[in-house]
Amino acid sequence: MPMVEVAGKSFEVDEEGYLTNLNDWNQDIAEYLAKEEKVEMTENHWDVVNFLREYYDEYQIAPAVRVLTKAVAKKLGPEKGNNKYLYELFPYGPAKQACKIAGLPKPTGCI
């Protein structure tokens, strides 16, 4: 497995760049993974990333994008829980990119 070095520590990622061990995750790694995805993290990005980590903690899966959108709407309001908003934050797919930055595995039920 490839290793990456962030803030003097090395971490294992898979061949697609997803963090191998969920518990390795921290803010520095999130910033690094975001950079790899060419995403500049703002407060709005963090809201989604933190939401995903909470979702994973509760259900032990990364949600499909449809499920994510619905759940974000419920938690953060309809102006954030819609495809347009989430794709603006994460242009290459909110579930895929945001999950990666959140240190989660690839979404279940995302095809």
């Binding site: 509760e58 259900y59 032990q60 899966i61 949600p63 499909a64 499920v67 619905k70 759940a71 039920g109």
Partner: peptide
């Protein structure tokens, strides 16, 4: 191993 019993609670959202 992962505790996937929690995931059954996500079914409703799907």
């Amino acid at each position: 191993v992962k505790d996937f019993s929690k995931t059954y609670r996500a079914l409703e959202g799907y």
